[in-house]
Structures are given as C-alpha cells and as structure tokens.
Nucleic acid binder design. Structure first.
Lengths: 342, 342
DNA sequence: ATGAAAGCGCTAACAT
DNA sequence: ATGTTAGCGCTTTCAT
C-alpha cells in the first residue's frame, strides 16, 4: 500500500511551490505562466498525482459529494432514479454517496446523519414518511431536495435557517392523469392501491386519484392499503375483486406487476374486466402480460433540475418534474408498445 | 448555512481538551474517566457536534467510505446487489460511494479514478470487460474486490504491489447448474443467450453452459449474442426459433423476461416447446408469465464476504458466493412458487 | 507570476 | 487520566 504522491512532491519535481501546483490543478485562482504550467503538468503525469479530496474538503468546506437517500434501491423505479441522478452528478464532477433507508424511519434518520458526517455538499432525500422527521430536518444546513410532496409549513424551520430546501410535488398530478385516462376508457368504479395505511407517504397520489374521480362525477371505487412491493400488489387482487371495480390505479410499478399476476390467478381478465395503470413506471412495463400502462417520470430531466437546484443555490422552492402516460395494454389501449422496448 | 460545531467547542464547553473529546468519540485509544466522559457526551449533545470526516480521513488516511462501481444500476440484479452491499457496509459503519459505468469502458475508467480521488478505503468493482483495463488496475492501491471471473495472471501486477485483489468466480457454476437442470428435464438442444459478442464478460457463463452440455453428451444448441437488456432478450427470440432448440439459458433475468415476451409473440409455448432459465435472478421472476426459473446469487451472503475481505485485509484470492436454483414454471417445473413472492 | 505560511478539524504521540 | 501539540494535504492570503 504505497503512499500516494502529494502536491509537495509534484512541486519539488516541477521546481516550484505547492501554491502554483494548486493554481494549475484548479485552474486558478491565480494565473500561472505557460511555461511553469507545463512543467507542473508533466510532474503530475510523472508522479501520478491525484488531489486528495479529504484535504480539499477540509480546507474548502465543500466536498463535491452529494448524498442520496432512497427507501428501497431494489425498487426498479428508484434504481432508475438513482442511476439518472448519478449520471447527472457525474457529468458535473460530483460523486454520489448513497444510503438505503430500507423504508424504516429509524434507519433513515441514521443514514441521513451518517451522510452529513461526510460533509456532503448537498442532499437528495426520498423520504420514507410525510412529513419527514422534524429533528432530522433541523440538522440540515446544506442544500437539500426532498423527494416527496411536503407541506411548505413543515419546512419553515429549515427555510428560516437559510437552507435551500426544495420539494418534488408531482405524484398528485401523475395519479390524476392515470385516473383520468381510465375515466376516458369509460371505467365507472376506479379503485386505488396505495401504500401502507400507517404511512402518509402516498397521500399525494390518493389526492390526485380523488381529484380525477370527483371531476368526472364518479364515486371512488375504494382504496386498498398495500406494501409498495410486487407481493403487496399480488395480494391486493383479492380485495379488488370484492370491491367490484372495473379499474385500478396502483401506486407503483411493482404493485402493478404484482396486481397483474394476482388478477390473472383470480381469473380476472385485464383489461377486459379490469383496467390497470401504475404510477412511477419503467421500461419493465413493456414486458409484462398484458403490458402495463404506466405514468412515468422523466427521470433524466428531473435529475438535471435537482442538480441545478443543488449547485446553484437556486431559490426554487418546488420542482415539478414532467410526467407522461405511456399507454400500453392493461388500461384497454390494446396493441400499443408491446414488447417493443420503446 | 451556519458553521458546524467543532471538537474544540465541545472541549471548551466540557472544560477539557480536544484530545479527550476525541478519546470519547472514538472510544479510545486512551481511557477517559467516567465523569469526564459524561460531561463530554453532554457537550456533544448540547452543541450538536458531529465529527468532520474530511479531517478524520486526512489525518488517519482511511475514510470509512467504500466505492462501488456497477455497469447498470437500473438492472434489477445489480440494484439488488448494490442494496445488499449498502446494507452490509452500513452495518459496519461504512458509507458507500456509487458509480455507474453505463457499461462503457471509457466511462468506467473515469468513474473508478474519481472514486479513488475520494480516498475510499476499498473498492468493489463489477467490471465491464474481462479482463479489466490493466492501466486502471495498476492504479489500485487499496483493497479491491473485482466482481467478475478474472484470470489470476491478469492480476499479478496488482498482487505484487501488495494490494488485496479478490475475485468473484461463480457464474460458471450458475450456468452449469441451470443447464444441468434443463438436461434433467430431458431437453435435447440447449442454447445460450450470452452478452454482446465483442465482450468477454460472459465467458464464464458460456463455459458453465458448455460444461454441462458436454457432461451429458449433448451437442450445444447454439449461442446467441445479445445486449444484457430485456430488449436484447426479446429480440433473441426469433433467432432462438431458427436454432430449433428446446431450451435456453439466458445470461441474466432481464434477458429472460424479454425472451418470455418475445417467445410469446412468436407463438412459442414456454415451457412446453421451450424451457427457459435465467441467471442472476431476483424476486421479480415470481411475477412473469410463466414465472421464470432462475439461478440466484445469495447477495446478502456475498455482500458479507465482500465486506469481510475489504476490512480485514483477508488474504482470500477468490470469493465463491452461494448460488441456488429457484425452479419455477419456465423450465417445466409447473406450479411452483407462482406469484407467492416466496 | 510565484512563494511562504497560516490554517481547515482531527488523531495520536508525547508530555504531565 | 488529561492536556499539548505536531502534523495529515490542500487552498489561499499576503508578501515579494
């Protein structure tokens, strides 16, 4: 485990000072003569020097590392989101520390605090609960993007402390879109499979669903609380049958996929007997049977907006990512996009 | 953005020195009187002090951060692996920096170098190619686990430099298991859908497949090169039909899922006409139609072994993770595990 | 344009 | 048991 070369060794080899090496490496803040710069670059190449980011962070107080906290990295949508964010951050010369809260609030608090320990210069936090724990929020002194539909007042303390805390508020619109589409298909009783009832997490989705139902003078088809898993969706199928609905909006794609399997087993035909749309879809929806109509978030765009917010200290209080519906078979839009992988 | 409290402030409040605060925080290396310890802990609570990890890293040379590089975080298997590793590392008080190489060697090199910049104390690298680029290997001065079936000689340079470089070598066995199972089902012509042909990446899987085919005096049913995506699997279906096989081993679950959709479309019945098994499966395989028989890696165990290797400087040269076959419908083992979510 | 030097917050060797 | 202090590698102010 040989020690890595330091700035000092580079300076010695280039016959100059560490200050100048620093100027060259960082392209400033002071000018360097072309000649000297060249010697320094050669010395860097010769020694294999790479700046030590711990030292850099210590002196500058900024780390070029962003933290991301998600409740379940094995959820394909969250994995996709994480990937999009990683790509965006990488292109801006940031690295990404990732924490998985396992959908548990206790663990989440601990994960966030650990990340803060690393002097991250920004935090992207897909919270488990809504609102997020106040005591953790109070510890945030860095630009933070909360990925959940938060009431502004929950953040007042954070705002006052001068932190940039932004918020994603789209799930409501996504749910509204999905429900509306089912209405357009002529569905009469539209149910909603949401998250576990003890969690407020999915309140926004439920609201969007109710918005659309109300707007079309229908009665809500009933709401089912289920874990955000394929198994959760699978098990909801039976309840759904009892509710005698003809359509359902699932809170996420995993539930949607589970639902399809459960309905198949229950002998319910999709989309003939029951239309299904899931939120937060990925390309995996192209390969189920039937293919699953979803509402997708444009994660690449969202990632870019998040990054903008974090490194420009933008004053945006809310980010509203674009959302679009991908009509496939499960809602009744037959023969669209089947297995094409888009 | 108020400055965070430092050790010095804690010391002042507790009326002691920074050294003692350090001893308390790190539980050593020197003893502290019970009384003093209590005052320090109170001061920490009062100030909200959290150690600055940049300073810690700088002085100690170790960072409590491990780097993970994967080719595609949106691949459910890799997402699961990343999650398992994150959980294991978290339980050992490590944090995880993650880089997505996007399955491109150029990007991969850059991602690895960026991680090295952060003084990570270990690297877990699911390489794009086999063997991994030598120039990058040569830069590794930290314990590293390469997740790919590497020839020992490719690492000789790394070993000589005293680095702990360990290797995962299981894919061959996984492929052998899968193929053998298809043989047991009486399949005669067993094909293999591997990775893109210009990549050696999947050589181990191909070897395991050939091992099993040879052991049963069958002729190989043909090999198809396809991207490691659902779309790749989907498009292989047509070629598979031409090969007139009665079984196939797909290199990963995404290909397997795509294959099922493609075969369905081509009017091929699974498992009646064609048996399908995919490697590196996840629980998602429980919800396809038919449910997809897979060989799974026990990612939790693997993660634990990896972590052991990284923080104990273990001398193990190879990690052989446990692998097990989950028989579902697609191979011909009907009515097993259908939608049960296990 | 270049260099000397003062820290950034922390750990641990070395006093006491 | 506790305190003092010398760096860890880097950035940047302040000379020159």
């Amino acid at each position: 485990m040989g020690k890595r070369p330091t700035q000092e060794q580079v300076a010695r080899l280039a016959e100059t000072s560490t200050a100048v090496v620093s100027y060259v490496v960082n392209n400033g803040p002071r000018p360097v003569a072309e000649n000297t710069r060249k010697r320094v670059l050669e010395a860097i190449a010769a020694t294999g020097y790479r700046p030590n980011s711990a030292a850099r962070t210590l002196v500058s107080g900024r780390s070029s590392v962003i933290g991301l906290v998600v409740p379940d990295l094995a959820n394909p949508f969250l994995a996709l989101l994480a990937q999009s964010i990683e790509h965006e951050l990488f292109s801006r010369a940031y690295s990404m520390l990732i924490g998985d809260s396992a959908d548990e609030q206790r663990r989440e608090a601990s994960v966030v605090e650990t990340l803060l320990t690393h002097e991250i210069s920004g935090l992207i936090w897909y919270t488990v609960a809504q609102p997020p724990p106040q005591d953790v929020l109070d510890k945030l002194t860095i630009p933070t993007v909360i990925l959940n539909d938060i009431e502004r007042e929950d953040l007042s303390a954070a705002d006052e402390a001068g932190r940039v805390v932004s918020v994603l508020a789209d799930e409501r619109e996504a749910a509204r879109l999905a429900t509306e589409h089912l209405v357009d298909h002529g569905r009469q009783r539209i149910a909603h499979v949401g998250g576990p009832s003890q969690r407020l997490n999915s309140a926004a989705r439920a609201r969007g669903w109710l918005d659309a139902v109300a707007a079309s003078d229908l009665r809500p088809g009933g709401q089912i609380a289920a874990p955000f898993t394929r198994q959760g969706g699978f098990e909801s199928a039976a309840q759904l049958v009892e509710l005698e609905c003809d359509a359902v909006v699932a809170a996420n794609e995993m539930q949607g996929i589970g639902l399809l399997a459960g309905l198949r087993r229950a002998g319910v035909r999709v989309p003939e007997d029951l239309g299904v749309i899931a939120l937060n879809g990925t390309t995996a929806a192209d390969y189920s049977l039937p293919t699953l109509t979803t509402v997708e978030m444009l994660t690449a765009d969202l990632a870019a907006e998040i990054a903008d917010t974090l490194d420009s200290d933008s004053q945006a209080l809310t980010i509203v990512p674009d959302v679009r519906m991908i009509a496939r078979e499960s809602c009744g839009c037959a023969n669209i996009g089947f297995g094409t992988g888009r």
